[in-house]
Design a protein around this nucleic acid. Structure first.
Ligand code: MN
Ligand code: MN
Ligand code: MN
Ligand code: MN
Lengths: 218, 218
DNA sequence: TTTAATATTTAGGCTTGTCTAAAAATAAAA
DNA sequence: TTTTATTTTTAGACAAGCCTAAATATTAAA
């Protein structure tokens, strides 16, 4: 059994591994978790003892197979609860993350089996992120961001890279969400900003925004 | 904000106050919480500082108004989640307590408002216990137990005093549950045991069983 | 009412998970 | 290749919540 703190470390390291595809540094973990590098070192050494990750001093860490499975399961729970909150309790997609952050630590195999059933086995959470299966397999869809589209290309928004409340509310205000069709009308090459068509409106967005929107080209 | 441990103490003291209608002793709390009296003293002194209960050395404790409100809210959450688990996820009534014990500590006002809505504002949990309202008011229904019925009296089972897995499974095996009609066929006065009619069957039960079944006489 | 039993509190210690400050290793710059 | 800057680890401390053992109050018995 892993504590709430341990589960959070494993989850964070899992995400960072996917992002950087290499050993995860102590400071990267500290950054993501809003904690101090010295605290991370302590915890990482403890988790190495429990063989859920490998760790060599000054060289960063990598999850073991069992570490990955535990992390994927926490992420599975997080995303299933997010689906529940949006689909059943009518929460908006920018309100669910913090609640799911708590719910993901509820310990009960059976609960998750039945929740998954109740939700009719969803494959994606409300932000377009894939839900790992019971075995801990995630199928990370090879996603393009809006910033990769060229002038006159069109696509459907399928997810967001960041899911902070601020970003999601920015999107809402502009009627951008999952399933929405976006067309690139103009693209500035010196800063990657672009003019896009969304529904009836045209709007100007920075590269930072475009880079955080996942798109399926059509 | 109160920690998980603090919430559990408040909840336990709330239940004990209702049971004994007087100052709750250190050892009574320790017993119910499966902990040591010395731990209880520590925590109770901390909670007195926070003014959620009053405490005088060697004299036991009583919740203050705010302490009662916090406790009732935790109980409200516990019972709403139990309803969710039984009504929506098809859990059986003997499986939900431990999961609700975790879920009751999820922090989100909005979540409970919406859960209550989703469940259509239930008034009782799956064991027949009343769900406190948002203001923390509980209306403890004046309940009779089966052991108070006399020969030839009939009633409907409306709840259970104990809700341990063992007891609930004992009841299930004998087709006793909420809504079931029970008739007292014979009663032994030296030990309170009785022969009862449940559905098509007659069965013999001890006073301990009868004393843990709440009944509405019809 | 004095003595014995029981209940409660205090003292001191342990684990988890965090922190700051200092030391050590690694990476970057000169 | 030294020197400097940055990253990481260690050392030592602290709060929360628990424990055991010892001291003290209260209650029950004699
Ligand atoms: Mn989330
Ligand atoms: Mn999500
Ligand atoms: Mn319960
Ligand atoms: Mn209940």
């Amino acid at each position: 059994m892993f504590s709430l703190a341990e589960e959070n470390y494993l989850k964070t390291i899992f995400h960072l591994e996917q992002e950087y595809r290499s050993g995860v540094s102590t400071s990267a973990i500290a950054d993501k978790m809003d904690t101090k590098p010295s605290s991370v070192t302590d915890m990482v050494q403890k988790l190495a003892e429990k063989e859920v990750l490998s760790y060599k001093k000054y060289k960063g860490t990598l999850l073991t197979k069992s570490g990955k499975a535990i992390a994927a399961n926490v992420i599975r729970k997080h995303r299933l609860w997010e689906v529940f909150l949006v689909a059943k309790l009518n929460f908006h997609w920018d309100e669910v993350h913090d609640i799911a952050e708590q719910l993901e630590h509820i310990q009960s195999e059976e609960l998750i089996i039945r929740l998954d059933e109740f939700l009719e086995h969803p494959n994606f959470d409300p932000h377009g992120d894939p839900i790992p299966d019971e075995q801990g397999n995630v199928y990370p869809t090879e996603k393009k961001t809006l910033s990769e589209l060229e002038k006159n290309q069109q696509g459907i928004c399928v997810g967001v890279k960041e899911s902070s409340t601020e970003f999601l509310q920015y999107l809402d205000k502009r009627k951008i969400g999952i399933g929405v069709k976006i067309t690139v009308l103009r693209k500035e090459y010196f800063d990657g900003s672009m003019m896009i068509q969304v529904g009836g409106n045209q709007l100007f967005i920075s590269n930072k925004i475009a880079d955080n929107l996942y798109i399926n080209i059509i």
